[in-house]
Design a binder for these strands. Structure first.
Lengths: 210, 210, 210, 210
DNA sequence: CATGAATGAGAGTTCATTCAT
DNA sequence: GATGAATGAACTCTCATTCAT
């Protein structure tokens, strides 16, 4: 596999991203990629053996560029929490051009038939990684909440469970966004709820919530 | 289209359910169904023109049999709430043999290329229905929570937002269950959290949460 | 083959005629007929074993009803000639709803692969019949022309050849009508030419013909 | 679409010609072509998307090679006329291995169901072209006849109508040749008749014509 | 490296034909 | 007679994958 001309490989990865964003994962064919890239059929095989391995690289690159800059700029734990949620909200609302559904489809494909042992291993490893990513986020959230509590801004009894709840709710928003659809208002309300929830009772506003 | 022998149609729907549960939606072929049913190639077309229409009927049947019996047995609003959450938990934990991922894949397929206008209409209508189902659940939860408050068992400031949160979290649990995986403990904890959350503060226990 | 309920057979033949008029012969399927008739698939086979045998009966019936009434009414040979040509003209102009192209397609199909000896015989016999029909027309025309000459109305040196020419030209008009198309004017001019041609020289007009 | 290796494309066109000559147009399948060519199933689609587009190219090539050489060699208009008719005669008699019936079937197919607008356009355009070819021939014949008259060899009152008559008769001969069949004698007689017809009366012989 | 022609497996789909009822 | 469900053959078309250049 030509590690030499990384240029072309990068090019393919970029183009492929658009295809995956448009078509998801399962229905994307090597032909789709070839056509999007304007390269030869055989040429693609010099770099990627199938859509699965290509998708992995697309995802890797995607995540490298998702730097979470805003969060880095935050200074207090509450600001970081807020930045994290804002970023998630942005992601959820910008779901149309994202790889979210492609990722789900890829996950689904991994949990199914694997003729070869190698494939099975790769599948397990990817899912384990994704699982870790999720739990890392929970962990970070947990830390932030506890820090917020320590600093006197937040107040909650089960910070870990709150962290989990935030992550599950975000996952829920995402999957809704790419399936049945969510309105911007619904996203805002939920994100705000998740956030405001953590504050000490005296902060509570008397909003009309039905 | 043989509308008469509902027997065979039912048979196909049942067999097809297994295929969809096993392979999701996008990669299922008419041939898969034919082989699962042990019928002839052309025979299937007597009943269903494509996997999409077959899937819709599978789903319809699936939901008819999901009667929500437990909820019906509940007497107080809190019991109903509890029953609802228990049912969701059961569903999430039994995700392996469910149609959940197939449904997601079907939704994804609908949000993409539709050559014909008819298809587009059908797609929109299905997604609208699913959306309605979601919001109906929110509405029911909202009512239950308010009833619980009125009856003095529950206490929460934003019942509607709580209802939304429960639904998003459940969706999150589901998608996690079929993608990166969740442990039974994680599901239990989250479901319990969603429930206990609604109770009046004095009930709060001093659990160790991290 | 049920010769009993001739009623139903007639019904099928009538409906089938429309199908052949619309689709020609080669692309018509037994299914097309079944659908046009609104009868059962198996039912059709009780009366006709394939589209070929059905077409033969359609054609037979069609020709029985084409009685050539006008010609019968004519008294002199010249009137009969004129009536014959008028009828042909009408047929050529009304080609859209006719079986003409179906007949050609049927002829073509007969001149090709016949797996069974029986088929081959049937094919030869049909073509021989059609051939006879053509030559009968030539013969009749020939007689009329000679009669016209005898009666002093017409004048031509090679009446048989004229008769052939008329028939070939008519066939040419027909095939043009169903393939590349002909205007009403072209048909009129040609038919008139074929007719006026036969008259004695003194009758000739000084039309502008380019 | 491999536009490069015109070699293979030519090869396919040549082989396909034989298939169309043998089977006509309507019943020819892509599979027939594939088998005749001895290439792979998918291979054919690299060059032609369906039998229609392939047939168009077969026809194009066929007509390019029909150079009308004899006519070019002729010096006087009467010689050209004679050469034209001889060529037509040859064509009519050699009808077994020709594309004539395939062309008719193709025309028929064009005058029927077109699901897509593009197809409809293509159909209209082809038929218009064929129509033009016919009228071009009429025009050429008309010119030749007038020239023959001017030069004193021919004598006829309606040269345009004579030209039309020749063309319709030739079309008639052709369609008869591929359907009910014509004998060589019938063709000779008709062609001679069409030709001799145009000569001045004094030339007329006292042939026995019935 | 890169190309793209070529292959062949496989899915979709349609119908002629049969046969139990 | 009549039905229409069922079968299976045949065709269309698409792609993953290879390989000679």
């Amino acid at each position: 596999m030509g590690e030499k001309s990384g240029k072309k490989k990068e090019f393919i990865i970029e183009k492929a991203r658009d295809v995956f964003a448009r078509k998801g994962f399962l229905t994307v064919t090597m032909k789709d990629i070839v056509e999007e890239c304007g390269i030869s059929r055989g040429g693609l095989y010099l770099y990627f053996e199938d859509t699965g391995s290509l998708f992995l690289e697309v995802l890797k690159k995607e995540r490298e560029s998702d730097s979470g800059e805003e969060i880095d700029k935050a200074e207090t734990s509450v600001e970081m929490l807020s930045a994290f949620l804002r970023e998630q909200k942005k992601e959820i609302l910008g779901v149309k051009d994202s790889l979210i559904d492609a990722i789900y489809e890829y996950c689904f494909s991994l949990t199914r038939d694997h003729s070869e042992e190698t494939e099975k291993k790769a599948a397990e490893s990817f899912l384990a990684e994704e699982n870790t990513r999720f739990h890392m986020s929970v962990k970070v959230l947990h830390s932030l909440i506890r820090a917020g509590i320590r600093e006197g801004y937040l107040d909650c009894e089960k910070p870990l469970q709150e962290a989990y709840n935030i992550m599950f709710a975000i996952e829920g928003l995402k999957i809704c966004a790419v399936s049945i659809g969510v309105t911007e208002e619904e996203v805002s309300n939920e994100i705000n709820f998740l956030f405001s929830h953590l504050f000490i009772r005296e902060d509570e506003e008397d909003e009309d919530d039905g």
